[in-house]
Design a protein around this nucleic acid. Structure first.
Lengths: 192, 192, 192, 192
DNA sequence: GATGAATGAGTGTTCATTCAT
DNA sequence: GATGAATGAACACTCATTCAT
């Protein structure tokens, strides 16, 4: 079972989603197709399992970062969230193209929704309780940041991060988030 | 030939990438498969053509926005770029999931690179010549903005924009970009 | 197309329904599986085609017999119907076990219904117009005869007819039908 | 063992022959597949057991009816035999389509032969010893009646009996048998 | 004796691509 | 150039049967 899951990751990483098929996974896992189907009802389930684990890891990392910065300055929060997200994402960098393809299959939408909702909620909460926070609409800010995170980073992954300058990416993203948050705070004092 | 291209778009929009196949495209185009293969060497070529057109449209829209704001304030530039990108993207909203899947196929990387490079270059140029611009590394800023654009927006597309508040999305994104750019300028005067 | 149909009959006859599969049919027909699927949308369609043709042949044979004996004595009619049914049935004797299995699949019920309904209707009509006919419920008599025909004969087929004494079977069946019909007429004159 | 047999019946009734498989039977019986295979060497054996029991029940019912009418009038015999057969058959009405499919598998021929032979023999004996019987070939008459019984009734089962007029079916069949037998007797006195 | 995880051959079906007409 | 019938490799999934525990 664990072997099958591991094989799924490997096949996904090395062969991509197109060449991904149950036979290959079974062979790589050193089991028969039949065995594979005893643990996963169908091919999609296999893919979803991988995607789900990834998304859960991301959401948990962000939640943890938010928890640990519940009363810190929003600048700290922004940095922590970006760092947490990137750490998880880069740990499975070679998986991410495949994961992104999976997540674009219609039925995976729910799964993704879940993760982003969790993340946005955690961020919104931390923004509300931040020492220096005072937002007119923390939920909107949190949703924007989440979209930027879950959306921007993969784009970075393929082009910039793969070229080994992930540190720089993290710095820029953090700065973008911090300045965006700072601007949002200003809005509150002097509404448009 | 044009009919085939049009049919490709239609099939992609209505049936999605999974149900996309040459037979269906040919039928929809009102030609035979054989004819289709006279104009496009294989299925991938068909998909690439669509993706390429989309990416070129994006790149051109951004280049035009940059051109028109070459000497304007960076705030104006940010807004114009975001607006330009979103206009194109939302014009073919129902196509974008399929396009994203295509772009995640390994061999499409080049195509995407090209568009983002063009966009980043245009933005970098405009940042350099901006009336109030004074960046230590305009290229890095431009690349970050490009990644955020090409990456964030699709994430928005599925979750937020579909809920008809695309206007808000545009406002938030513009604000994020503007504040980020402003923060970058500050950096120059008072280096870290 | 005709070759595929022919191959279907052959595979059904020689290998039976259990060993019947699309690959085998295609190979026997000298075509590829793909070609097979161009003419028949799926395996079931293949089987149904064979069953339908058989049932239509039976129904038509009975209808023709009824037509030709529309005003004859009921004794003649009974003999003609039995003879017509048996002629068709024995012409494809080696197919009939397989056909019977097909007809027992749930979705084939309609097909069978159609054939028996047609046959029953034809027989009922002829009974009504028969020179010496005078039945209280020709429809009931016709349905009973049809059931006996479509049901009894296969049982005969496997045990008796296969032992080459089909002639005797036909004689007995004809007698059974004639005496039953005669008894039904008696009923009318002297109701129970 | 008894549980397995019972489960076989249940699965056959509720899921039909197509969905019938050893795993399902074992689960329904509350045992493991391994255990199932300790009592029945293979899937076919399981099905044969069910079919055999059914056929034995039919044969025994007919034998009993014949025994009880050994010296009665042939009219009585006919009625008793039809009634006995139908009672058993309708008691497991929902099983009969599946049973019929099983019986059409080549290797089940023996089993069926056995039951019909027993039935035909019993009927032939009773015809010979009947008070008013005087047949030139009682065996032929008996075989014809048996074929009509085992063959016709199922046809009735699916179309007529299911519509709750089983009583009528029984009346018609009985009449058909009685008139056939009567006709056979006449033959002896006045040979063709 | 009982278990049930493991096996893997077998099957229906799809679809990119070719090529004779 | 156009056609579309033909191809056949590829794949998801099932299930009868075995055998180590």
């Amino acid at each position: 079972m664990e072997a099958i899951f591991e094989a799924t990751l490997q096949v996904l990483s090395s062969d991509g989603l197109i060449r991904f098929n149950t036979t290959r996974v079974a062979r790589r896992a050193g089991v028969s197709v039949g065995t594979l189907y005893q643990y996963f009802p169908n091919k999609q389930a296999l893919l979803f399992a991988v995607l789900e684990r990834h998304l859960v890891m991301l959401a948990e990392a962000i939640e943890k970062a938010c928890d640990e910065n519940r009363h810190a300055a929003v600048e700290m929060l922004a940095e922590a969230v970006v760092k947490a997200y990137l750490r998880v994402q880069m740990a499975q960098a070679e998986l991410s193209p495949a994961l992104y393809r999976i997540s674009l299959e219609l039925d995976a939408r729910e799964l993704t929704e879940l993760a982003t909702r969790r993340s946005a909620k955690a961020i919104a909460t931390s923004l509300s309780t931040a020492g220096d926070g005072d937002f007119s609409d923390p939920r909107l800010v949190a949703e924007t940041l989440t979209a930027a995170l879950y959306g921007t980073v993969p784009a970075f992954c393929h082009r910039v991060l793969s070229e080994a300058n992930g540190v720089e990416a993290q710095k820029q993203l953090t700065m973008m988030f911090q300045s965006y948050i700072r601007a949002q705070k200003a809005h509150v004092s002097q509404p448009e």
